[in-house]
């Protein structure tokens, strides 16, 4: 192997890179970029989603949703509700997933059974699950009624404005646990076991191991999960639509519920896309802030990679010595 075949290899691998992501790019252009642009254009019209004609209205849709408190009284309140919902669900669901995954990962029996149990809500049709929860939370004859009789209270979590959103948040955390645990636990299993042994040798107990080995080890995945959870919780819609339809006096009217109603119930595609772009903008800003404030995700990822690099370097040197006859020059080896 000489220098020529080295650069050929680099070129071949670069070309392969493009080839490998070609389907992704094609998909992105057709099914992501094109719709985004189309939606953007729609937000400047008064199109209703199905008619053949529409008129250009410029910024009217945006101005209306921001300023017309008569026609769009829920716009600002729903932003607040959506953010509140996000603040309730994201921290709790991620922390719960970590704790549960850690427990499952500590070598207990029945891991499979537990994980399957947690995953049940994810596989059951959400419509059926919400019909079920409506039944359980019913103040007249559900579990709630039974508890009320027992404790002589008058509690109605789903239909009281102050607690309605929290109830839906709990349901969302409950429903998403299976998926989150799956991802976190799989990341945990990927952590090098010898790091745990090293920690134990250094005199660390289970808490130490958890905070110094497990958490940093899964941090790239965690980081990813936080960002995606924030993004998806800001788009919360399903449970609100199925269980409260916007809640007692708009207490659970999240932003996407407004968008859905505008788009599919009232044929206001222009308004709906304008609102969606406002949300898109907000999400972009938040994600950008997250990247700036919490760069550790990448740092830690790099550190782990660096550590592995060093070990790999050691092994390479050893294997080189073993196969010393085969390659004369290894200087200038610029592989990653």
């Amino acid at each position: 192997m000489g220098e020529q075949s080295l650069s050929k290899t680099i070129k071949k691998r670069a070309l392969a890179g493009w080839f490998f992501i070609a389907p992704l790019l094609a998909y992105f252009l057709i099914f992501q970029l094109a719709p985004i642009i189309i939606a953007f254009i729609i937000s400047f019209t008064d199109w209703d989603g199905s008619s053949a004609d529409f008129t250009w209205v410029g910024l009217k849709n945006y101005i209306q949703i921001f300023t017309n408190r008569i026609l769009y009284p829920d716009f600002w309140p729903s932003l607040g509700i959506t953010f509140g919902y996000m603040a309730l669900t994201v921290p709790v669901s991620i922390m719960l997933a970590i704790v549960v995954a850690a427990m499952l990962n500590s070598g207990i029996k029945g891991e499979r059974l537990f994980k399957t149990a947690f995953y049940i809500p994810c596989v059951t049709a959400s419509a059926a699950m919400s019909a079920l929860w409506l039944f359980i939370l019913d103040p007249g004859f559900g579990l709630v009624a039974g508890l009320n009789d027992l404790f002589h209270t008058n509690w109605d979590p789903l239909h009281t404005s102050s607690t309605s959103l929290i109830t839906l948040a709990i349901m969302s955390i409950w429903g998403g646990l299976g998926y989150n645990v799956l991802i976190v636990e799989s990341a945990m299993k990927n952590i090098n076991k010898s790091l745990y042994d090293a920690c134990e040798v250094d005199g660390g107990g289970s808490f130490r191991k958890f905070f110094h080995v497990t958490l940093p080890g899964i941090s790239p995945t965690l980081y990813f999960m936080i960002i995606t959870s924030v993004i998806s919780s800001l788009q919360a819609f399903d449970t609100m639509y199925l269980m409260t339809g916007g809640g007692p006096a708009g207490a659970t009217t999240t932003f996407m519920l407004l968008v859905y109603n505008a788009m599919f119930k009232h044929g206001q595609a222009g308004i709906a896309t304008a609102m969606s772009y406002v949300l898109f903008f907000i999400i972009m800003v938040i994600t950008f802030i997250q990247f700036k404030i919490v760069p550790q995700g990448y740092q830690i990822e790099n550190e782990i990679t660096l550590r592995k690099e060093k070990k790999a370097e050691e092994r390479r040197r050893v294997s080189r010595l073993r196969l010393s006859g085969r390659f004369a020059k290894r200087k200038g080896d610029s592989h990653e």
Partner: peptide, 14 residues
């Protein structure tokens, strides 16, 4: 209020 928030209050006779 409780009756109204519950489903089928009329059916259950309350």
């Amino acid at each position: 209020i409780t009756n109204r928030n519950s489903t089928n209050a009329f059916g259950r006779g309350v």
